[in-house]
Amino acid sequence: MSDKKNWPLWEIFVRSKNGLEHRHFGSLHAADAEMALENARDVYTRRNEGVSIWVVESKNITASNPEHNGEMFEPAQDKVYRHPTFYDLPDEVKHM
C-alpha cells in the first residue's frame, strides 16, 4: 500500500454560459488533466450546467492565508475615497 500512487486532486471551474466567467464548482481525483476534464463533465455538468470547463491540479493553486486577512484586506476598509459616494456634489449636477 505504501508505494501506491493515488490519483491527484483537481479543482474544477465551469463557465455556465458564454458571457459569464468560469466559477469554482468543486474538485475531483483523476490520473491526468484529460481524465479530470472527462470526470468533471460527468460529475459537474450532468444537467447542462456548463459550456466550458477548466481543470487545475490543486497543488498548483496558491491561496492566501486567512490568518493574514487583517493585513491583506483591512487596509481597503478605510479608503472610502475610492467610492463615488465620498464626494459631495450638489443635487443640481446631473449625469454624474
Partner: peptide, 26 residues
C-alpha cells in the same frame, strides 16, 4: 440509471468537500 449516476456524483461532491478538512480520499 440517471438516479444512480447522481448518487455517485453526490458521493463525489461530499468526499471532496470532506477532503478540504485534511483527510485523504484513501
Amino acid at each position: 440509471l440517471a438516479k444512480v449516476q447522481d448518487e455517485a456524483g453526490h458521493g463525489l461532491y461530499l468526499y471532496s468537500a470532506c477532503e478540504t478538512l485534511g483527510i485523504s480520499r484513501d
